[in-house]
Each structure stands twice: as structure tokens, then as C-alpha cells.
């Protein structure tokens, strides 16, 4: 039901629109993190460090549902839908191609919403340990969440022994996406 944005929208307007989408999305990741059992038992410094390292990766998982591989469109969180072709004009082609690939791979696993949410929690606590003070506490939390995810997935699909390993293989994909693309530029209008 979202119409494709008119071609008359300037590159600048699209860039601003794309940039603005990230602000509420990041705030939602912060709220999501606080709801992860055990996350707020970490020191505040470690909570902040994990969020700084892992939010981009959590957003990549979250944004998967906004990608339509068949139509090759992306729907931003403000409701605007853009074709991949129009977004290439902003120089985002490489990032979006990588995200389409990732979305297809993750989408093919057919996760239920609660499995996806638990996977996002695992992604966050598996983020880079640079700057983390109590590494032991973070690793214990990661172990607990991975165990919970494994139990959830294998109890629902006892005959599919490959799904959980395939899901964990998406973690290095996300790190690569993060390393390659988190230095991309956003632009915010100064009022």
C-alpha cells in the first residue's frame, strides 16, 4: 500500500529521508536492549559499548523485512518506498546490494517473530568486545542467550539440525556488513 516515491524527489531529499529514519530506529534498539533479560545487569559502560558496536547489526536484521527481493524495493521506516535503482543514485548501491543478499539469506531461514527477536538479542551481545570492561559478564550473557535461541529453534523443528548452525553463520555476515558500511555518511538539515 505504500506508493513508490515520485521520481521528482531530489537526491538531497532522499538522503535526508534515509538519514532521518535511523534516529527513531536506533532509539528502539536501545529500548529493545533494556528488555533483554540480563542486559541491564551489565555495567552501564558495557551496555553503552555493546550498543555502540552492535546497533548497526541489529538494525540490519530488523530492516530485513523492509526489503522486497522480488520487487527490488526498500520501504523506509517513514513509510516511503524506493526502488533500488533510485537509491543507487545516492551512491548507496553497494550497501543496499549487500543488504538485499543478507535479507534473502536470513529470510530463507523462515524464522518466527520471537525467534527473530531472540536472534537480534544474540546479535547485540555478540558485538565487538573493544572497550568492554567486564568481558566475562558479557560472555555469560551471550552464552545464555545462544542457549535459549538454540532451545527455541530446535524444539520447534526437531528434524532440522541445520537451521541453528545456518543462523549462527549470519553473525559473521553482519560483522562484515558493519565493517564495510558503518562509515557511510548521513546528512541532517540544519534548521
Amino acid at each position: 500500500s505504500c506508493p513508490v516515491a515520485p521520481a521528482s524527489r531530489s537526491s538531497q531529499e532522499m538522503w535526508e529521508s534515509f538519514s532521518q529514519c535511523f534516529t527513531p530506529a536506533v532509539k528502539e534498539v536501545v529500548e529493545f536492549a533494556k528488555s533483554i533479560p540480563g542486559f541491564q545487569t551489565l555495567t552501564q559502560q558495557d551496555q553503552v559499548m555493546l550498543l555502540k558496536s552492535g546497533t548497526f547489526q541489529v538494525l540490519m536484521v530488523r530492516f530485513c523485512s523492509l526489503f522486497d527481493p522480488k520487487e527490488r524495493t526498500v520501504t523506509f521506516l517513514n513509510g516511503q518506498t524506493y526502488s533500488l535503482a533510485s537509491l543507487r543514485a545516492l551512491g548507496m548501491g553497494v550497501l543496499l546490494d549487500a543488504m538485499f543478499d543478507f535479507s534473502e539469506k536470513l529470510g530463507s531461514l523462515g524464522l518466527e517473530p520471537d525467534e527473530m527477536a531472540l536472534f537480534m538479542a544474540v546479535v547485540l551481545v555478540s558485538a565487538d568486545r573493544c572497550g568492554i570492561v567486564d568481558v566475562g559478564a558479557v560472555e555469560q550473557l551471550q552464552e545464555n542467550l545462544i542457549k535459549a535461541l538454540r532451545t527455541l529453534i530446535t524444539s520447534r523443528r526437531p528434524d532440522d539440525t541445520t537451521l541453528f548452525p545456518k543462523l549462527l553463520l549470519r553473525l559473521p555476515d553482519l560483522r562484515t556488513l558493519n565493517n564495510q558500511h558503518s562509515d557511510k555518511l548521513l546528512a541532517f538539515r540544519i534548521d
Partner: peptide, 25 residues
Amino acid sequence: PKTHRVMTLADHISHIITQDFARNQ
């Protein structure tokens, strides 16, 4: 005149997180 503030996605994410935790101190 400068009309836009430009920053990396990583810096923008970092800024929002720092603001959120400072607000909730």
C-alpha cells in the same frame, strides 16, 4: 551557507546512544 550536518552512520548511532543514557542518568 552550510545547510546540512554530515556524519557517519556509526557516529550518528553513537551520538543517539550517548544522549539516551545521559538523559536517563
